[in-house]
């Protein structure tokens, strides 16, 4: 390994760590207010729906992507793609996401489900 190689390696690692720090703070929100998170669903770049992810609730709904209807399931503070008309089904195989910043993406259908908000609750007593 040459010196330049080592510099490049260090540079790449440093850049990754810095971007991790920057992104983490951006996605975790500045304040400590602990509230339930939301899932933002957008199709072809336009926001279709925003869903509250409160523990204890359960729902599912259909949305129209570029290829046809997909079914999204919500269970408490997590969300997933239940069915999709795409060929690869990568989005469906991804299963549940629940942390802020995580996304489920269906590229052929041009659908994106993203979780926003601060740290989710583990449960809600009611």
């Amino acid at each position: 390994m040459t010196r330049a190689d080592k510099f490049l390696l260090a540079g790449l690692v440093l850049f990754s760590l810095l971007s991790m720090a920057a992104l983490y703070s951006r996605f975790s929100g500045g304040d400590d207010k602990l509230q339930s998170s939301k899932a933002v669903i957008s199709v072809q770049g336009k926001i279709l729906r925003t869903i509250d992810l409160t523990p204890g609730t359960r729902s599912s709904f259909t949305l129209q992507g570029r290829l046809g209807p997909s079914i999204v399931g919500v269970e408490g503070n997590r969300i997933r793609m239940l069915e999709a008309p795409c060929a690869g089904k990568v989005c469906v195989n991804q299963r549940w996401i629940e942390n802020p910043g995580e996304t489920i993406v269906c590229i052929p259908g041009e659908i994106m489900i993203r979780i926003e908000g601060t740290a989710p609750l583990d449960a809600v007593t009611r």
Partner: peptide
Amino acid sequence: WKIGVKDPRKSA
């Protein structure tokens, strides 16, 4: 564990 206490009047 972070456990929320549900608001008695507001559903979510």
